[in-house]
Amino acid sequence: MNIFRFAGDMTHLISILVLLLKIYATKSCSGISLKTQELYAIVFVARYLDLFTDFISVYNTVMKLVFIGCSLAIVWCMRLHRVVRRTYNKDVDTFRHYFLVLGCFLLALFVHEKFTFQEVLWAFSIYLEAVAILPQLVLLQRSGNVDNLTVQYVFFLGAYRAFYILNWIYRYLTEPHFGRWIASVAGLVQTALYADFFYYYFISWKNNAKLQLPA
């Protein structure tokens, strides 16, 4: 465990807690893409299949349970909570995310580390995570001005993967057998997707204005 990875996991945890806070405190999920949350739930379930077979550390197991639990809780909240679900505006959350799931699964069938059930699903979850934010970014683009908590949620989510890239560079330099190409390339793509969002976030933060995304 290196500091980059720990910082990445913590910012990832913060992003999820910010989202839960926003939904719980405001009893509203306006500005949040349910499709992105569903994609993240799929990512965590597909990736953490080894939860009961490979014990790596208490930290690893606890964090996996937290990530799976929170992502399912957010999807449950947005779909079924009697107050919150009424604030979900499905007319703006129109990204056809099932194509993302299909595309990533097909890619995982061809590009993976080993052709086993667990490894193919692991690669699938890595690819899917790289594009899972798209419905949320499209929704932000559509709804123009968004509330701060949503912006912070996306910001922390982007920061987490950026820390992981530093972690992969560090591990590549320090561990002889470390070759995590699938995750590193997908992680770069994922962080690149956030880059333009980060740019506008930084501009709005510098001008102390609300986030204005180009329509």
């Binding site: 996991d9 080894d50 690893n60 990530f67 580390e113 080993k114 972690n167 070759g179 995590r180």
Partner: peptide, 10 residues
């Protein structure tokens, strides 16, 4: 050495 095949990252 055979690289340990587990994913130790989240």
């Amino acid at each position: 050495s055979q690289e340990v095949k587990y994913h130790d990252e989240l």
